[in-house]
Simulated scan of single mutants.
Amino acid sequence: MVKIRDVCRHVRSKNAGPFWVTVDLFFDGPENYRAYHGNASLSPDLFRDLFGTDPALVKKIPVKDLNMVKISYPRATPQGGMEERDMHSGQQYVRLLDIELS
């Protein structure tokens, strides 16, 4: 099976305010975008399992012109809180790289 790292030229995560994180999946071309942007493996349940977020709040926004998908989810704890381990959410994408796409 193909993994996210195999079909994306760039994957990043970042703050989307103090209460949200955004992950951007830049596919390596229109063919892979068409094949995988709506993949069932990228469901809200994946973000519940990986990041402990409420799947009902996960937002998925396809951006066809850029061959990318933007996925936003609420942070488990607010940015800068006592339990914070990644202040800018710049390392959150790593958990997604080995996710297999069907």
Rank of each mutant, 00 (worst) to 15 (best):
M1D: 11
V2H: 12
V2Q: 10
I4R: 10
I4M: 10
R5T: 03
D6H: 04
C8S: 07
C8Y: 10
H10K: 07
H10D: 00
K14S: 01
N15F: 03
A16C: 01
A16D: 04
G17I: 04
P18R: 02
T22D: 11
T22G: 13
F26H: 14
P30N: 15
N32H: 04
Y33M: 03
Y33I: 02
Y33T: 03
Y33V: 01
A35T: 01
H37S: 11
G38N: 12
N39R: 11
L42V: 12
P44H: 02
F47K: 04
R48Y: 11
R48K: 12
R48I: 09
D49L: 08
D49N: 14
G52P: 02
G52M: 12
T53K: 07
D54H: 05
A56G: 06
A56R: 05
L57M: 11
V63Q: 03
K64L: 07
K64R: 14
L66W: 08
L66I: 03
N67W: 04
M68Y: 13
I71F: 11
S72E: 06
Y73P: 02
Y73E: 08
P74V: 00
T77S: 01
P78I: 15
Q79M: 02
E84R: 04
R85G: 13
R85M: 12
D86E: 06
M87S: 07
H88I: 12
S89I: 12
R95D: 12
L96F: 02
D98A: 15
S102Y: 09
S102V: 10
